[in-house]
Design a protein around this nucleic acid. Structure first.
Lengths: 253, 253
DNA sequence: AAGTGGTCTAGACCACTCT
DNA sequence: GAGTGGTCTAGACCACTTG
């Protein structure tokens, strides 16, 4: 181990320096680094608390606290009696973890229709959001989500070409379940957090046609930037939601 | 104490009954009940962990875990060296805790303009949301929020008349800071959680005039139901946001 | 210096899952 | 029964705030 673990109390504290991390946070960082390195894949179990405690030379309680935080951040999932597992978007049976769209009535699953998938050069504004250089390779995906046959969401998705090398329309079309499950399994990219900017906009000719609404219809514009470990942005997405039969649900705390 | 605390292990477990709470959750419930009873007011300190532990006859660690959860839910705020305090909307200097509206540029404070405040009888749909009976007393408030002199948000707010007895236009107009601060201080009503339903809608004549936009302009409709302790709904609010210079920011985890 | 929350330990025992 | 996470305890010491 290149960076030996030390209790916060024994850490050097230069005058005016930023405060140092307690032990459990150091362990959390080590665990995140291992997740990032792909040591354990999505859905797999990580070692038990006792084993990790022994490995790191700390008490079980300290490991517990590290894992507690990671579970609270949805990086890990604890299952009593079974173990602790790497969180995944693939098995969320209820719904897509990041999709806040709810039907006014009922709860039917959404149908998907892939419209387009091609590799492009990133324009400046996308490159900036994804922390790439303008002109870098980028994958662009366009798709529709249907509810009872009626189009409800038009998504444009932009991904760094670098990370998603073998991504093709066929691959996307074959796949069942959320894209994020595919991204984890095929490309080792875990979406762990996202920021959304939401606005009301008027449907333009293009989106109106695809969503089968009159031009000018108010639509919810949801611009999502998704992050993987280490706060690295790895997906930009703009969804246009027809909110005549669905709404965006949010919880405030 | 009418309900003696017992470790989960010693609790009776009738066949097929719901699982019982661990000790720290029982303590959490007791603390919430005391908050609800107004034993400590918003912004005040609650007793120290050691004192609570002694009072409840448990270890400090158990009290800590109860408080940890409550802090995570924004019911309490811990301050090292000082104590643990009842969370409040009054002193949030940065911004209104439940308002997710962010300007595209800059970060100016929002100006407020009270349009109306009157007591009414609750129509059925509001009564239902607030778990009252149709026709029960209700306070209706209408106001605008401005950014740099331009109206950005039109809010309609409905409150149970029962809980907000002395609420008048004058009282609201005098008050500085978020309404929720006033509600805490004057009426002992703490908003601790809220659910929002968000849609894109077209401005009607009324709202278009007040927001100074053309009729038909896409607006963000934000319907918020706020809850106090014990998941009791105590406020319904519908905001219409002009998102031409601002957006609704959300974080997904 | 005293009092508060924050970290860390060690150990006991419980609840759940799988074999 | 063995192994996992979950609860609870008791005690030591640290970090921060206030008098």
């Amino acid at each position: 181990m290149s960076t030996p673990l030390v209790p916060a109390a024994e850490l050097p504290r230069p005058e005016g320096a930023a405060s140092f991390s307690p032990l459990y946070r150091q362990i959390k960082s080590l665990l995140i680094a291992r997740l990032q390195a792909g040591e354990w894949k999505a859905g797999e179990a990580i070692p038990s608390e006792l084993e990790l405690a022994a490995r790191f030379g700390v008490s079980q309680g300290t490991v517990r606290k590290a894992i507690d935080e990671m579970a609270a951040e949805n990086l890990l999932v604890r299952r009593q009696g079974k173990g602790t597992f790497v969180a995944t978007h693939a098995e969320e049976k209820i719904q897509y973890r990041f999709l806040r769209l709810v039907p006014d009535e009922g709860s039917e699953a959404l149908g998907r229709q892939l419209l387009d998938c091609r590799r492009q050069r990133a324009p400046a504004w996308i490159a900036k959001a994804l922390q790439m250089r303008a002109g870098d390779a980028m994958v662009e995906v366009r798709r529709l989500l249907h509810s009872k046959g009626v189009p409800v969401v038009l998504d444009d998705i932009w991904l760094p070409g670098q990370l998603f090398k073998g991504l093709t329309a066929e691959r996307l079309a074959q796949h069942r379940g959320p894209f994020y499950g595919l991204f984890e399994a095929e490309f080792g990219v875990h979406m762990i957090r996202a920021e959304e900017k939401i606005r009301a906009v008027a449907a333009d000719a293009d989106s109106a046609a695809l969503l089968q609404v009159p031009v000018g219809t108010p639509l919810l514009s949801v611009e999502r930037l998704s992050f993987t470990y280490g706060d690295r942005p790895v997906e930009l997405r703009r969804g246009l939601y027809n909110t005549s039969t669905h709404f965006y649900r949010n919880e405030l705390n």
